[in-house]
């Protein structure tokens, strides 16, 4: 019997500091046992438990896309014991990854649809996974228009800056990058909060689904904008965070009503969330 609590050993291949406050680093991990990579088959929207012996585990969204082979990526915010320790680790160090866990964005349903992605701050990780996945030559034709609204407090707090710039150059994805405020006279993108920019750019709700991830305050003010644009609750998809331990629906702490965020989520439609207790 496979032990679902046993992490796959991985080696830290590279560490990139993403933001000017140095609070977010992207870890590229390579499986120590190459056969584990196939066992870790995942879909954009899923997460994994990052495990550091002696420190514990932390549930983090998978930032790489299954179309990227040979490694997996996680962008980690420095918050508690495990993530702070991770930030002090070096390339070459050994740690563990357990997963993939949870459900994913409903790719079969999304096929043939226009996709509107709305992200804020460091919640852009599984959205990066999704964009890379959809833009892959094998997949791009399976989806209609792709529109992205991505905001951070300042330019230096945006994740994946090189990729954002590359996506800006493409004609098969509409990028609306924004910051809350900016003193850089050469800033060539938007200035304004995500809800405001979403309203301005007004992506069509026609044949479209919206995937929204970000801080609660951003989600709170963006949902009415999406509703006004004509997105029904079953076409607004979000992903939740929760304190987790087992990640496989057993240890009991991440429930919202009868649903475990780790196993039945983390991806929920707004329609589903409206039927659950507001305990998240």
């Amino acid at each position: 019997m496979k032990n679902p609590y046993l992490p796959y050993p991985v080696r830290i291949d590279s560490i990139v500091t993403e933001t000017e406050d140095r609070n977010l680093k992207t870890f590229t991990l390579v499986f120590k046992n190459p056969e584990d990579e196939a066992r870790f088959a995942y879909t954009p929207g899923q997460f994994a438990e990052l495990s550091v012996a002696g420190q514990g585990e932390s549930p983090i969204g998978i930032a790489s896309s299954p179309t990227e082979k040979g490694f997996i990526k996680f962008t980690v915010n420095k918050v508690g014991r495990v993530t702070s320790h991770l930030h002090s680790m070096k390339e070459g160090d050994v740690m563990g990854v357990r997963g993939p866990m949870g459900n994913w964005y409903p790719w079969e349903t999304l096929e043939g649809k226009n996709i509107v992605i709305i992200g804020g701050g460091f919640a852009f990780t599984t959205l990066r996974s999704s964009i890379v996945y959809m833009l892959h030559p094998d997949n791009r034709s399976r989806f209609g228009d792709i529109t992205v609204v991505y905001g951070a407090r300042s330019p230096g707090l945006l994740l994946y800056k090189d990729e954002l710039a590359a996506w800006e150059q493409r004609d098969d994805i509409k990028m609306h990058i924004t910051v809350d405020g900016c003193s850089d006279p050469n800033w060539k993108y938007n200035v304004g909060f995500v809800p405001t920019v979403t309203k301005e750019k007004a992506p069509s709700a026609d044949n479209a689904y919206a995937i929204i991830c970000g801080p609660p305050i951003m989600i709170k003010f963006t949902l009415p904008v999406l509703t006004d644009l004509g997105f029904p609750p079953d076409r607004i998809i979000s992903s939740l965070e929760m304190r987790m331990k087992c990640g496989i629906g057993i240890c009991g702490r991440c429930n919202i009503g009868s649903e475990y965020v780790c196993k039945d989520g983390p991806v929920f439609t707004l329609e589903k969330l409206s039927k659950l207790p507001n305990e998240y």
């Binding site: 609590y5 012996a53 002696g54 929760m242 009991g252 702490r253």
Partner: peptide
């Protein structure tokens, strides 16, 4: 059945252990 998972290190060796936990405690969530 709820439980917590913790690492306990003694010197250069340690154990990942699980311990009963409780939804009555604020730390649980």
């Amino acid at each position: 059945w709820c439980f917590d998972i913790q690492d306990e290190t003694h010197g250069e060796h340690g154990d990942r252990i699980r311990i009963w936990d409780s939804c009555m405690f604020p730390l649980f969530t």
